[in-house]
C-alpha cells in the first residue's frame, strides 16, 4: 500500500516537474489578442474577408495588415468587439443581406436553348453565355446554394434562387459566385427592392422576359427621391423616401418588378427546403 502511494506519488511528482520545467523552458508567446479574436469571429471560415479562414484573419488583424471591418457574417456586433480588442475606432456599417434580383422564372423568361450538362450556373454560363435569353437573369442551377456557408440560399419551386433572410449574414460569397451578378447586397432592414438585373432597353428586356424592368421611369416619376435609374434599370435608393409614395410606385410598375418583400411574404423568406440542401452535400 505504502509502496504504491510512494511510487505513483513520485511518478506524478517527476512528471509534474518535467512538464513544469518544459512549460517554462519551451514557452511560446501567442498574442492574447489573437486568441480573443478567434473567439469573437464568426468561425464559419467563409473567406468573405479575403483570408483563408478566421484564424488567418485574426493573425492579420493582430499584425495590423487587415482592416477590422471585413468579417461580414459577424456584422456590427463583431466589428464593435474587434475594435475594442484592437483599441481602434471604427465606423459602424449597417448589416447587409443578399437579394436575388430576378423574377424571370419559366413562366416569364424565355429560354435560349435547352441546357443539358453540368448542374452549375458557372458552367452553363460558359455555354453560349447561359441557357436563358436574358443575359442577366437567374439560371437557377444553384451555384450560390452550394457555396453558401450559412445555408441561407435555396432554389425555389419556380427555379430561381431565393434568400432565407433570417439566415443570410451578408457575407457576399454568393455575389462573387454568381456568374451573372443576379445576387447583390442590400441593407438588411430594407424590404423594397427592384427584382431585376437587366440594364438593357425596354425592347430587349421585353424580348427576354415578362417580369423585367423596362426602364420606363414610372417609379422615378412617382417617387423621385426613392428611385434612381441606372441605364435602363431602376434602383432603390435605400434609406430615402416615403413608404406611401413607394407603395404607389410599386403599384404602378408595369412588370411588377418592384416588390416589398414584407408584404409578399412568400418571396425570399421561405425556410430552406430540405431537398436542395441534400443535393449540395456530397
Amino acid at each position: 500500500m505504502m509502496a504504491a502511494v510512494i511510487c505513483l506519488g513520485s511518478l506524478g511528482f517527476v512528471a509534474a516537474l518535467l512538464l513544469g520545467m518544459a512549460a517554462r523552458r519551451f514557452a511560446v508567446t501567442v498574442d492574447p489578442r489573437q486568441v480573443a479574436l478567434m473567439d469573437i469571429l464568426a468561425g464559419a471560415n467563409c473567406g468573405a474577408c479575403g483570408f483563408p479562414g478566421c484564424d488567418a484573419y485574426a493573425r492579420a488583424l493582430v499584425a495590423g495588415t487587415a482592416k477590422p471591418d471585413l468579417c461580414r457574417p459577424g456584422g456590427a456586433e463583431t466589428l464593435k468587439r474587434i475594435a475594442t480588442i484592437l483599441g481602434v475606432a471604427v465606423t459602424e456599417r449597417p448589416p447587409q443581406i443578399a437579394v436575388v434580383r430576378c423574377q424571370g422564372d419559366l413562366q416569364h423568361a424565355r429560354l435560349k436553348y435547352a441546357y443539358q450538362g453540368l448542374q452549375d450556373c458557372r458552367a452553363a454560363q460558359k455555354l453560349a453565355r447561359g441557357p436563358k435569353l436574358c443575359p442577366a437573369g437567374c439560371l437557377g442551377l444553384g451555384s450560390c446554394v452550394q457555396h453558401c456557408p450559412f445555408d441561407a440560399l435555396a432554389i425555389d419551386s419556380r427555379g430561381l434562387a431565393m434568400v432565407n433572410r433570417s439566415r443570410c449574414t451578408g457575407c457576399g460569397l454568393c455575389v462573387t459566385i454568381c456568374p451573372r451578378q443576379v445576387l447583390a447586397l442590400a441593407p438588411a432592414n430594407e424590404t423594397i427592392h427592384v427584382l431585376c438585373n437587366n440594364r438593357e432597353s425596354s425592347a430587349r428586356v421585353k424580348s427576354y422576359c415578362n417580369a423585367g424592368c423596362l426602364g420606363c421611369r414610372l417609379c422615378v416619376r412617382t417617387a423621385p427621391e426613392s428611385f434612381v435609374m441606372d441605364s435602363f434599370l431602376a434602383k432603390v435608393r435605400y434609406g430615402y423616401g416615403e413608404p406611401s409614395t413607394m407603395a404607389e410606385a410599386i403599384a404602378r410598375c408595369p412588370h411588377h418588378c418592384i416588390l416589398n418583400l414584407d408584404e409578399q411574404g412568400n418571396n425570399q423568406t421561405l425556410p430552406t427546403p430540405h431537398s436542395v440542401r441534400e443535393r449540395s452535400t456530397p
Binding site: 504504491a4 511510487c7 512538464l19 523552458r25 519551451f26
Partner: peptide, 29 residues
C-alpha cells in the same frame, strides 16, 4: 517493487506526460 497492479495507471501517466512534453518541445524548436 511488486507493483504490477499499478501498470495501467502508471503507463497512462507516463504516456500523457511524454506526449505533452514532446508537443511543447516541438512547438518551440
Amino acid at each position: 517493487f511488486n507493483l504490477d497492479y499499478l501498470q495501467t495507471i502508471a503507463f497512462i501517466l507516463v504516456i500523457a506526460t511524454l506526449v505533452q512534453m514532446v508537443e511543447m518541445i516541438v512547438r518551440k524548436s
